[in-house]
Design a protein around this nucleic acid. Sequence first.
DNA 1: AGGAAGTGCAACTCGCGGGTTGCAGTAGCC
DNA 2: GGCTACTGCAACCCGCGAGTTGCACTTCCT
Lengths: 113, 113
Amino acid sequence: MTVDRDVAGELLAALADPTRREILEALAARGEASATTVAAGLPVSRQAVVKHLAVLDAAGLVEARRRGREVRYAVRPERLTAMARWMAAVATEWEARLGAIKQIAESPAPPPP
Amino acid sequence: MTVDRDVAGELLAALADPTRREILEALAARGEASATTVAAGLPVSRQAVVKHLAVLDAAGLVEARRRGREVRYAVRPERLTAMARWMAAVATEWEARLGAIKQIAESPAPPPP
DNA sequence: AGGAAGTGCAACTCGCGGGTTGCAGTAGCC
DNA sequence: GGCTACTGCAACCCGCGAGTTGCACTTCCT
């Protein structure tokens, strides 16, 4: 119950796959595109792209809008921004801790002879 | 040759695993610790932790230092910071593109009937 | 010296994620 | 109305990653 569906993990896992990142790049370059269109520019099948888009959508990285008989996908920056902030915060905290440890390790200063 | 061993993917994949993140938290909390120590506080075997630490080390998120008969691991913030910056940059670029698309879409104003 | 505590290596299981193919359904266009 | 171009669903393959167990090796302590 503590894990709460692991939102961070979902996002990171979504981003971790190279094919998925290529899809995101393709979407960002085109502004918006359908799964078929994207698949045409990649070495994988349309179905694979569809699955990836589902994952990306679940992670909130992408937005789907029905446009007649096709479905247009567009990139969604908010989650990425949030993630970046989160990572920066964690990094800062780590640095703080490392600093603290270092101080403690140096507290018994060796007196010069 | 272009992918260069997919550094970003390595980092993201390393971060994507919840157990790995727990390990990182444990390390950050303790400052530094051995695999056995970390494993004691987690519901997995020591060997599992060792493997995870190997992955984290390969991703540059962790640093190993031999301390007599044991190996102490410590967290390493640099890569995290770099990653955060990278993500923020990508997010910004996406936003820029979205802005541009929106402008284009709104340029031919539909005349009212 | 000899036992305790720790690490390192290897073999093995198992589930899931990335990928494919095939087919049914539905919206557009002539 | 009928053909075409999409999307949606399902079944299936395969490899890899997370985890375990067992054992050999090294370092420390008394």
